[in-house]
Structures are given as structure tokens and as C-alpha cells.
């Protein structure tokens, strides 16, 4: 890090290459989902990069690095528990992820019948929500007003529907 602070980019790259496995091992102890784990490792790496000015070369590097890693990991876990405490069964990232998966499926088949077939597996209300949201382009707020539901209930319902659709799509493949 001392060399990196003096502008040595090779040393900086080597530092990152060496600490990434350590950080992965550190995060793996708390996070089991592989994609979450890599996201957190990246967040930690960015934090280390942004905080590089605060490192005093006279002090041990690992203690500094793991403090940042712990802070970012706790931040992530705090956000996760907060979402759960607020009753949100899903995170927006999850919803987006599943949505992308579903979008990918629709792109690959490019068939409206196929989508209709998938939607047929959904309960009536979920089918309505997905149709309004993804085909007709309404926002969750507008759907909530139209169906006399709360906005969060619409989002939760949509997320459940995405899950069913993704599962069905995988089965059909």
C-alpha cells in the first residue's frame, strides 16, 4: 500500500490480487449466497480504494483492511435485517434479478403464446398485476390504487409471481 500511495500502479494491482481471496474467505463466513458474496467483496474493494488515503503505512495493513471489511459487511447485513423487520419479503435487487431472468426467458422464446402459457400458472390477481406492470406499463403505485391494495403488497405479489414464472420457465426449457 505504501508503494501504491506513492503512485505505483503495479503494486496497487498486486495488493488487490492478494487481498481479494482473503476478503472472499472473510465474507463467506457470514454470507452463503455466491452472488451476494461477490457483490459484498466488490463493495469492500471499492471501500478500500476510496479509503486508501486513511491508511497509515506505519500501522498494520490487515487490521485496517478488515475493519473496513467488517464495516461494509455489517452495513449489508443491517440493510438485510432492516428489510426483513419492515416485513418486506423481498429486496428490490432480488426483484430486479428475477425480472431480468424472466425477461431473458421471454427474449429467447419471443412468443406471446409462451408468455400467456406461463401467466396461466399464476393466480388471477398475480396474473393481473404482472400484466398491468410488465405488459401495460403501469407503476406499482398505480396498480395499488386500481386494485385497492397497498403498494408494498403489489410489489410482494409481483415478486412471488416472478419466482413462479422463473421456475416454470426453467421447467419448460
Amino acid at each position: 500500500m505504501r508503494l501504491a500511495q506513492q503512485g505505483d500502479k503495479k503494486a496497487y494491482a498486486q495488493l488487490f490480487q492478494e487481498i481479494t481471496p482473503l476478503l472472499r474467505a472473510f465474507v463467506r463466513k457470514k454470507i452463503s449466497r455466491a452472488e451476494d458474496m461477490e457483490d459484498i467483496v466488490q463493495e469492500i474493494l471499492i471501500s478500500i480504494h476510496r479509503a486508501s488515503k486513511t491508511y497509515d503505512t506505519a500501522r498494520p495493513f490487515k487490521a485496517w483492511m478488515f475493519t473496513i471489511a467488517r464495516f461494509r459487511l455489517n452495513d449489508h447485513l443491517r440493510g438485510l435485517y432492516k428489510n426483513r423487520a419492515q416485513g418486506a419479503e423481498i429486496s428490490y435487487e432480488d426483484a430486479d434479478h428475477n425480472l431480468l431472468e424472466a425477461a431473458h426467458v421471454t427474449e429467447s422464446y419471443e412468443s406471446r403464446e409462451y408468455i400467456n402459457k406461463l401467466l396461466a400458472h399464476l393466480p388471477k390477481k398475480q396474473k393481473k398485476i404482472i400484466t398491468m406492470m410488465k405488459i401495460e406499463g403501469y407503476t406499482a403505485k398505480e396498480i395499488a390504487t386500481a386494485l385497492k391494495m397497498t403498494e408494498s403488497a403489489v410489489k410482494v405479489s409481483a415478486h412471488r409471481a416472478y419466482k413462479v414464472l422463473a421456475t416454470r420457465a426453467k421447467e419448460e426449457k
Partner: peptide, 16 residues
């Protein structure tokens, strides 16, 4: 992660 590291290395570490 490798591309991220590459980007950060290009930016370089900040002066202490």
C-alpha cells in the same frame, strides 16, 4: 471483480 480491480488500479490510490 477483475475488471473492477483494473478500473481502481487505473485510478490509483489516493495520497495519504
Amino acid at each position: 471483480t477483475d475488471s473492477l480491480i483494473q478500473t481502481m488500479v487505473e485510478e490509483g490510490a489516493s495520497r495519504p
